[in-house]
Protein backbone atom coordinates (compact mmCIF):
# COMPACT_ATOMS: atom_id res chain seq x y z
CA UNK A 1 0.00 0.00 0.00
CA UNK A 2 1.51 3.31 -0.98
CA UNK A 3 1.17 6.48 1.01
CA UNK A 4 -0.19 8.18 -2.11
CA UNK A 5 -3.15 5.89 -2.48
CA UNK A 6 -4.03 6.29 1.18
CA UNK A 7 -3.88 10.09 0.90
CA UNK A 8 -6.10 10.06 -2.17
CA UNK A 9 -8.66 8.03 -0.29
CA UNK A 10 -8.72 10.46 2.55
CA UNK A 11 -9.77 13.37 0.36
CA UNK A 12 -13.07 11.67 -0.47
CA UNK A 13 -13.69 11.10 3.20
CA UNK A 14 -12.86 14.68 4.15
CA UNK A 15 -15.53 16.02 1.83
CA UNK A 16 -18.26 14.20 3.77
CA UNK A 17 -16.63 14.20 7.19
CA UNK A 18 -19.11 16.69 8.61
CA UNK A 19 -21.95 14.26 7.87
CA UNK A 20 -20.44 11.27 9.62
CA UNK A 21 -21.39 10.11 13.09
CA UNK A 22 -19.58 7.26 14.79
CA UNK A 23 -21.65 4.96 16.99
CA UNK A 24 -19.96 6.27 20.14
CA UNK A 25 -19.23 9.82 19.02
CA UNK A 26 -21.54 11.19 21.66
CA UNK A 27 -19.90 9.17 24.41
CA UNK A 28 -16.32 10.45 24.22
CA UNK A 29 -16.60 12.43 27.45
CA UNK A 30 -18.08 9.52 29.37
CA UNK A 31 -15.43 7.15 28.09
CA UNK A 32 -12.74 9.58 29.19
CA UNK A 33 -14.38 10.14 32.56
CA UNK A 34 -14.55 6.40 33.17
CA UNK A 35 -10.85 5.99 32.49
CA UNK A 36 -8.18 6.29 35.14
CA UNK A 37 -4.38 6.32 35.11
CA UNK A 38 -2.13 4.58 37.58
CA UNK A 39 -0.80 1.11 38.31
CA UNK A 40 -4.36 -0.30 38.42
CA UNK A 41 -5.67 2.07 35.80
CA UNK A 42 -7.61 1.37 32.65
CA UNK A 43 -8.57 3.57 29.73
CA UNK A 44 -11.36 3.32 27.18
CA UNK A 45 -11.80 5.22 23.94
CA UNK A 46 -13.46 4.82 20.60
CA UNK A 47 -11.31 4.62 17.47
CA UNK A 48 -13.98 5.52 14.93
CA UNK A 49 -14.10 4.95 11.20
CA UNK A 50 -11.34 2.38 10.87
CA UNK A 51 -11.26 0.90 7.39
CA UNK A 52 -12.36 -2.74 7.54
CA UNK A 53 -12.38 -5.03 4.54
CA UNK A 54 -13.62 -8.55 4.90
CA UNK A 55 -11.68 -10.88 2.65
CA UNK A 56 -12.64 -14.45 1.91
CA UNK A 57 -10.67 -16.71 -0.37
CA UNK A 58 -8.94 -20.04 -0.62
CA UNK A 59 -5.94 -19.72 1.73
CA UNK A 60 -3.65 -21.83 -0.42
CA UNK A 61 -4.66 -20.67 -3.89
CA UNK A 62 -2.70 -18.38 -6.22
CA UNK A 63 -4.91 -15.45 -5.26
CA UNK A 64 -3.80 -15.77 -1.65
CA UNK A 65 -0.20 -15.43 -2.78
CA UNK A 66 -1.01 -12.38 -4.87
CA UNK A 67 -2.93 -10.81 -1.98
CA UNK A 68 0.01 -11.44 0.34
CA UNK A 69 2.36 -9.79 -2.13
CA UNK A 70 0.10 -6.79 -2.57
CA UNK A 71 -0.31 -6.38 1.18
CA UNK A 72 3.36 -6.95 1.82
CA UNK A 73 2.66 -9.60 4.41
CA UNK A 74 1.53 -13.21 4.41
CA UNK A 75 -2.10 -13.72 5.31
CA UNK A 76 -2.08 -14.76 8.96
CA UNK A 77 -3.22 -18.18 10.07
CA UNK A 78 -4.77 -19.47 13.27
CA UNK A 79 -1.51 -19.63 15.18
CA UNK A 80 -0.19 -16.14 14.48
CA UNK A 81 -3.51 -14.56 13.89
CA UNK A 82 -2.48 -10.96 13.23
CA UNK A 83 0.05 -9.57 10.79
CA UNK A 84 0.94 -5.92 10.52
CA UNK A 85 2.01 -4.21 7.32
CA UNK A 86 2.52 -0.48 7.36
CA UNK A 87 -0.67 1.05 8.66
CA UNK A 88 -2.70 -2.08 8.04
CA UNK A 89 -3.47 -4.94 10.42
CA UNK A 90 -4.63 -8.19 8.88
CA UNK A 91 -6.73 -10.27 11.28
CA UNK A 92 -7.40 -13.98 10.86
CA UNK A 93 -11.12 -14.65 11.28
CA UNK A 94 -11.42 -18.20 10.00
CA UNK A 95 -9.80 -20.74 7.72
CA UNK A 96 -10.71 -18.70 4.62
CA UNK A 97 -11.56 -15.34 6.10
CA UNK A 98 -9.59 -12.25 7.12
CA UNK A 99 -10.28 -8.68 8.08
CA UNK A 100 -7.94 -6.00 6.75
CA UNK A 101 -8.04 -3.08 9.17
CA UNK A 102 -6.58 0.30 8.31
CA UNK A 103 -6.79 3.98 9.13
CA UNK A 104 -9.90 6.01 8.41
CA UNK A 105 -10.43 6.47 4.70
CA UNK A 106 -8.15 3.77 3.41
CA UNK A 107 -10.87 1.28 2.53
CA UNK A 108 -11.44 2.32 -1.12
CA UNK A 109 -7.73 2.19 -1.97
CA UNK A 110 -7.17 -1.14 -0.28
CA UNK A 111 -10.31 -2.53 -1.86
CA UNK A 112 -9.22 -1.45 -5.31
CA UNK A 113 -5.79 -2.98 -4.89
CA UNK A 114 -7.10 -6.27 -3.55
CA UNK A 115 -9.83 -6.53 -6.14
CA UNK A 116 -7.21 -6.21 -8.85
CA UNK A 117 -5.06 -9.00 -7.48
CA UNK A 118 -8.04 -11.20 -6.74
CA UNK A 119 -8.87 -11.18 -10.42
CA UNK A 120 -11.31 -13.89 -11.35
CA UNK A 121 -10.54 -16.08 -8.36
CA UNK A 122 -13.66 -16.98 -6.44
CA UNK A 123 -13.64 -15.11 -3.21
CA UNK A 124 -15.22 -12.07 -1.73
CA UNK A 125 -14.16 -8.65 -0.61
CA UNK A 126 -16.74 -6.70 1.37
CA UNK A 127 -16.29 -3.23 2.83
CA UNK A 128 -17.45 -3.42 6.44
CA UNK A 129 -15.91 -0.15 7.62
CA UNK A 130 -19.26 1.21 8.78
CA UNK A 131 -20.46 -2.16 10.06
CA UNK A 132 -18.36 -2.02 13.20
CA UNK A 133 -16.65 0.52 15.36
CA UNK A 134 -13.62 -0.04 17.54
CA UNK A 135 -13.30 0.33 21.28
CA UNK A 136 -9.78 0.48 22.63
CA UNK A 137 -9.33 -0.76 26.18
CA UNK A 138 -5.88 -0.33 27.65
CA UNK A 139 -4.00 -0.12 30.89
CA UNK A 140 -2.79 -2.43 33.63
CA UNK A 141 -6.33 -3.46 34.59
CA UNK A 142 -7.61 -3.88 31.03
CA UNK A 143 -7.36 -7.65 31.13
CA UNK A 144 -9.19 -7.88 34.45
CA UNK A 145 -11.95 -5.67 33.05
CA UNK A 146 -12.40 -7.92 30.03
CA UNK A 147 -12.41 -11.00 32.25
CA UNK A 148 -15.65 -9.77 33.80
CA UNK A 149 -17.41 -10.88 30.66
CA UNK A 150 -15.05 -12.76 28.37
CA UNK A 151 -14.47 -16.46 28.89
CA UNK A 152 -11.40 -16.54 26.66
CA UNK A 153 -8.07 -17.21 28.34
CA UNK A 154 -6.37 -13.81 28.07
CA UNK A 155 -3.30 -14.66 30.15
CA UNK A 156 -0.10 -13.60 28.33
CA UNK A 157 0.83 -17.27 28.00
CA UNK A 158 -2.35 -17.86 25.99
CA UNK A 159 -3.07 -14.54 24.29
CA UNK A 160 -0.98 -11.48 23.54
CA UNK A 161 0.12 -9.02 20.90
CA UNK A 162 -0.18 -10.75 17.56
CA UNK A 163 -3.30 -12.59 18.60
CA UNK A 164 -6.87 -11.88 17.68
CA UNK A 165 -10.03 -13.83 18.35
CA UNK A 166 -13.70 -13.70 17.58
CA UNK A 167 -15.48 -14.25 20.85
CA UNK A 168 -18.10 -12.72 23.11
CA UNK A 169 -17.78 -10.04 25.75
CA UNK A 170 -20.85 -9.86 27.93
CA UNK A 171 -22.85 -11.73 25.29
CA UNK A 172 -21.78 -9.33 22.53
CA UNK A 173 -19.78 -10.76 19.66
CA UNK A 174 -16.51 -8.95 19.17
CA UNK A 175 -13.27 -9.29 17.30
CA UNK A 176 -10.64 -8.96 19.98
CA UNK A 177 -7.25 -7.75 18.77
CA UNK A 178 -4.46 -7.23 21.29
CA UNK A 179 -2.14 -4.53 20.01
CA UNK A 180 0.44 -4.31 22.78
CA UNK A 181 1.52 -5.93 26.02
CA UNK A 182 0.44 -3.18 28.44
CA UNK A 183 -2.10 -4.64 27.56
CA UNK A 184 -4.08 -2.78 24.92
CA UNK A 185 -7.03 -4.45 23.30
CA UNK A 186 -9.14 -3.40 20.36
CA UNK A 187 -12.71 -4.60 20.48
CA UNK A 188 -14.24 -4.44 17.03
CA UNK A 189 -17.96 -4.46 17.65
CA UNK A 190 -20.97 -4.21 15.40
CA UNK A 191 -22.30 -0.68 15.46
CA UNK A 192 -25.68 -1.62 16.89
CA UNK A 193 -24.07 -3.21 19.95
CA UNK A 194 -21.45 -0.51 20.51
CA UNK A 195 -23.42 1.56 22.98
CA UNK A 196 -24.32 -1.45 25.12
CA UNK A 197 -20.75 -2.74 25.07
CA UNK A 198 -19.37 0.67 26.01
CA UNK A 199 -21.82 0.93 28.90
CA UNK A 200 -20.90 -2.56 30.01
CA UNK A 201 -17.17 -1.82 29.85
CA UNK A 202 -17.60 1.42 31.79
CA UNK A 203 -19.47 -0.49 34.44
CA UNK A 204 -16.81 -3.19 34.64
CA UNK A 205 -14.11 -0.51 34.76
CA UNK A 206 -15.82 1.20 37.67
CA UNK A 207 -14.57 -1.61 39.89
CA UNK A 208 -10.96 -0.71 39.08
CA UNK A 209 -11.54 3.05 39.01
CA UNK A 210 -13.85 3.87 41.91
Amino acid sequence: MTADSLAADNRAVDRLAHLRRSPLGGLADRLAAGSAPGPRGVRLREIPYLAQLNLRLDPIGPAARRVAEALGTPLPDRTASVTVTGALRVLWLGPDEWLVVGPDGTAPGVEQTLRQVLGDEPGSLVDLSANRTTLELSGPSARAVLEHGCSLDLHPRAFGPGHCAQTTVSKVQVILDQTDAEPTYRLLVRASFARYLADWLLDAMSESTP
Binding site: G94, P95, E97, T168
Partner: peptide, 11 residues
Protein backbone atom coordinates in the same frame (compact mmCIF):
# COMPACT_ATOMS: atom_id res chain seq x y z
CA UNK B 1 -23.08 -34.37 16.28
CA UNK B 2 -22.70 -31.04 14.53
CA UNK B 3 -21.76 -27.75 16.13
CA UNK B 4 -21.46 -24.28 14.66
CA UNK B 5 -18.93 -21.87 16.11
CA UNK B 6 -21.42 -19.07 15.72
CA UNK B 7 -19.66 -16.50 17.88
CA UNK B 8 -16.28 -17.30 16.37
CA UNK B 9 -15.23 -18.42 12.89
CA UNK B 10 -18.79 -19.39 11.86
CA UNK B 11 -17.63 -22.82 10.75
Amino acid sequence: ERWLHSAGCRR
